[in-house]
Simulated assay, not measured.
Amino acid sequence: MFTGIIETLGEVVGLDSNASNLNITMHSSLASELKIDQSVAHNGVCLTVVSLKDDTYTVTAIAETLQKTNLTELRVGNTVNLERAMILGSRLDGHIVQGHVDQTGVCTKVEEKDGSWFFSFEYDVANGNPTIEKGSVTIDGTSLTVVNSGANTFQVAIIPYTYENTRFNSYKKGTIVNLEFDVIGKYVAKLMDVRR
């Protein structure tokens, strides 16, 4: 489980396909603190550390994960939002994030407004994932509050700290992002469907 508060950025230094899996090697300041079998969120995708070497580590994404996320877009040199699993008993500064990406979305607009930024996103509603005003959403692992929620669109507001310390400063129109919708909202939506 994660909080959606990004700890640091990592750099992709290796991509190796193995059958239908993708091994991703990351250079990160977190590497020296990791252990094999630990979970780390990469752009919001929970992946297990499978090997460690110096200041790098490797994780493996299976076909199911690759189909539902933007990990196939990764190239050597790309930066990735990183967060280690939450420590039980510490503050939950973001919201409950599982690291189980629901689907991808696409950035449709970036606006700078008086020192902050508004990012608009569009997504396929066929999966039944809802957003609501002032509800939570996770974009590439970053916990954010929804503004201007629509049927298949929503917007988030980004403060300068988040803009400077996450991948948001590289987003532009057409950028594909990982979306994890609020777990409580998903359960409520599912229960409402069952009752209908």
Score class of each variant (00 low, 15 high):
11 E>M: 14
7 E>G: 06
93 D>R: 11
171 Y>V: 07
142 T>G: 05
19 A>C: 08
79 T>A: 11
93 D>L: 14
147 V>D: 05
15 L>G: 00
3 T>E: 06
87 I>R: 15
20 S>H: 08
191 L>S: 04
19 A>T: 09
38 Q>Y: 10
160 P>M: 10
46 C>D: 00
82 L>P: 00
37 D>Q: 15
196 R>S: 13
150 G>M: 04
24 I>V: 15
87 I>G: 05
148 N>T: 12
167 R>K: 15
15 L>R: 02
30 L>T: 05
123 Y>K: 04
44 G>E: 04
10 G>R: 00
141 G>C: 06
118 F>Y: 09
18 N>G: 04
30 L>W: 04
72 T>H: 11
93 D>E: 15
58 T>D: 08
190 K>G: 06
191 L>N: 13
31 A>V: 09
133 E>Y: 14
189 A>V: 09
161 Y>S: 06
34 L>S: 00
1 M>R: 07
122 E>C: 03
130 P>E: 12
6 I>S: 02
18 N>E: 10
141 G>R: 03
44 G>F: 05
139 I>T: 02
1 M>Q: 09
79 T>W: 10
149 S>R: 02
75 R>T: 15
100 H>I: 11
156 V>D: 02
185 G>N: 08
41 A>K: 03
195 R>W: 09
87 I>F: 08
172 K>C: 09
146 V>D: 04
7 E>Q: 15
5 I>K: 03
90 S>N: 12
52 L>G: 00
124 D>K: 10
120 S>Y: 13
100 H>T: 05
131 T>M: 14
23 N>I: 09
134 K>M: 14
145 T>W: 11
25 T>G: 06
87 I>N: 03
50 V>E: 00
62 I>C: 13
7 E>N: 13
40 V>A: 00
50 V>L: 03
99 G>C: 08
102 D>K: 01
105 G>P: 00
166 T>V: 15
189 A>Q: 12
149 S>F: 02
120 S>I: 10
25 T>E: 09
73 E>F: 07
111 E>F: 06
190 K>Y: 15
